[in-house]
Design a protein around this nucleic acid. Structure first.
Length: 294
DNA sequence: TACACGTGGCA
DNA sequence: TTGCCAAGTGT
């Protein structure tokens, strides 16, 4: 009963998809996995150039598993959330240890890997291996909420409900379902964004409940955000940037320069050490984790 | 369930 | 300019 949706999305995506390096037909499952992890909470346009360099440097899980952690964190550069780089490194090691260096295609095996949650596991199974699963990210949740629910935004992320609602829209055929999923994501990332809709260009307009009811976006943001400057997260970022820029151990007094509040700075540094992103050396010196080789 | 977790572009 | 927002995951 959703045939119209499937053919509409499929043809729209074929004609309008953005050029992204990991969409090249020759991309490996590992390449897909890396692109998905890098894209977590990060605009894909910022990911693309880094992904290309990354895959040239570490083409396979085995290559990457052997990399030094400090090199990984430097290569991650300012992509954000450096813990993702750590998880990706652990993920490569798990792929080598548990799967003989081959990215698994089974959803549960993917889910068991470090840094791989519901979304990423589905995305790899579907986009790299052609499996049939609903792939539900923030874009899909929003587009489905608007198209099928007539609501301006998706509600709270409740995995089960999201999977059910998306599942109901997908075709039986795995290959087509994959294109519908990537098409919904693309639509949400381009024409049907959180704060800006372009119904005039949208192929789903004729049957979209949200458009039918006026497509009015609320003035209020759909989710709460917090101030960033001066937060622990901000100070962590400043410390990481300082350590990335230095090949030699950095004395505490240098770190003291990144933020004026002692307590905040201490909290940030302690957190980075706890998270395995920073190593403390004798003499009150600090380095990127694994800077001496893992 | 709710919060922590980086960074930079855009309106 | 300030603040929203981005292919989420782990706790």
């Amino acid at each position: 009963m959703n045939d119209w949706l499937h053919t509409t999305i499929t043809s729209w995506y074929a004609a309008n998809q953005r050029e992204l390096p990991w969409r090249d037909p020759g991309t490996t499952a590992w390449g897909v996995l890396v692109s998905e992890v890098m894209s977590q909470q990060t605009p894909v346009g910022r990911v693309a150039p880094l992904w290309t360099q990354w895959m040239e440097r570490w083409p396979t899980p085995t290559d990457f598993a052997a990399a030094n952690t400090a090199d990984v964190l430097r290569a991650w550069d300012r992509l954000g959330y450096p813990r993702r780089a750590l998880r990706l490194h652990e993920c490569a090691q798990a792929v080598v240890d548990r799967h003989d260096g081959e990215v698994p295609s089974d959803l549960d095996e993917l889910l068991a890997l470090p840094g791989i949650g519901t979304y990423t596991a589905s995305a790899v199974a579907v986009f790299a291996y052609g499996k049939r699963h609903p792939v539900v990210d923030t874009n899909v949740r929003r587009v489905v909420a608007r198209y099928a629910g007539g609501e301006p935004d998706a509600g709270m992320a409740t995995t089960r409900r999201d999977l059910t609602a998306t599942e109901a829209l997908l075709p039986t055929d795995a290959a087509t379902a994959a294109i519908v999923s990537i098409g919904l994501m693309e639509l949400g990332a381009t024409l049907c964004a959180a704060r800006k809709v372009d119904c005039g260009e949208c192929p789903l307009k004729p049957r979209c409940k949200f458009h039918a009811t006026g497509a009015e976006l609320p003035d209020r943001p759909s989710r709460k955000t917090q101030r960033y400057h001066g937060t622990t997260r901000y100070v962590r970022g400043q410390i990481m940037a300082l350590l990335r820029a230095n090949d030699t151990p950095v004395p505490r007094v240098a770190i003291d320069g990144v933020w004026h509040e002692d307590a905040r700075r201490a909290e940030a540094l302690a957190g980075l050490i706890t998270d395995g992103l920073v190593d403390a050396l004798d003499g009150d010196l600090f380095v990127l984790a694994g800077a001496d080789g893992d």
